[in-house]
């Protein structure tokens, strides 16, 4: 009897056991082994563990301007993209949050979600046809004699920024909608009835109250922008080197497993840090609303 009781109360464990084992074997151990390899003695072309702990790979990132600059470039462009995405994304998030009509609201949400879920390579195909030297924009400008030769809209930093903004905009919008919807209409009404103009109400009431969503959105966009391999690879034409490009290049093309892993670890920790701050703010938001 006693045995049966214990048996029943521990049975739910079997619901989670397969997933837990799966994550242990194919997630926790692989990520941990990536850390181990990053601290192992670098030997080109050899993945097997050397067993000599060293910081060589990390010092190389720090000392070689090629890799240090890539880290700085990643951080700068990601910060820039976060700000641009916020400015572009806020109005649409506000519109969706304030749209009461269910059909129209669902329609707008489907547009944002479709744009987000569509394979990024396909979206970049569209952007590249639009921005290329023989692309639609340059073609149109030359057709109307506004410019004589194509202006460089991609294969440079501008192209990478445009690509990353297109990539991360839906994430920003989704981070903002919930917060903006949570702003009580009576606060806004109070401000207006006390004589504040719509403009003043926005800057003094609505914007400060959306701050948690703004912070969460910019951090999330920052984290996904530094992690993107595709956008700098295609929109930057391998001329704008960001960290994910080096990870792939070092491992797949040069066989430098330890060094590639070290760059991956730096990338992982940078993105983890911004996500941790993001979650802190997200939890505070959830707590504030409850």
């Amino acid at each position: 009897m006693n045995f049966k009781k214990i048996y029943i109360s521990y049975r739910p464990i079997f619901l989670v056991l397969p997933t837990f084992i799966f994550f242990l074997v194919f997630f926790i151990i692989p990520v941990a082994s990536l850390f181990i390899i990053a601290f192992d003695k670098p030997v080109t072309g050899v993945l097997a563990l050397q067993g000599e702990w060293t910081l060589k790979s990390f010092l190389r990132i720090w000392n070689r301007s090629l890799y240090f600059d890539a880290a700085v470039m990643s951080l700068t462009l990601a910060a820039l993209v976060s700000i641009i995405t916020l400015i572009i994304g806020y109005p649409l998030a506000y519109l969706i949050a304030k749209t009461e009509n269910v059909a129209r609201n669902t329609f707008l949400m489907i547009l944002v979600l479709c744009a987000m879920q569509l394979d990024m390579v396909i979206r970049l195909f569209g952007l590249m046809v639009l921005l290329g030297d023989n692309g639609v924009i340059n073609g149109a400008l030359m057709y109307f004699d506004i410019i004589e030769k194509p202006i460089g809209l991609m294969y440079n930093k501008l192209g990478v920024v445009i690509g990353l903004v297109q990539f991360s905009l839906p994430f920003m919008i989704l981070s903002l909608i919930g917060i903006i919807r949570g702003i009580s209409p009576s606060v806004v009404e109070a401000s207006r009835s006390l004589g504040a103009s719509p403009n003043k109400t926005f800057w003094n009431i609505i914007l400060p109250l959306s701050m948690p969503g703004i912070l969460a959105g910019t951090l999330l966009v920052f984290a996904i922008s530094i992690s993107s391999y595709l956008v700098p690879a295609l929109m930057g034409g391998w001329k704008v080197m960001m960290m994910p490009l080096h990870v792939y290049q070092q491992v797949a093309e040069m066989g430098k497993w330890q060094f590639g892993s070290a760059i991956a670890v730096v990338l992982f920790l940078t993105s983890l840090l911004s996500v941790l701050i993001y979650q802190k703010t997200a939890i505070r938001i959830a707590g504030g609303r409850a």
């Binding site: 692989p30 990536l34 992690s227 990870v247 991956a264 992982f268 993105s271």
Partner: peptide, 14 residues
Amino acid sequence: ILPGIVLGLALYVF
């Protein structure tokens, strides 16, 4: 939250 390229590399190494 793990960058896709990092997860891909970790699995490949493993």
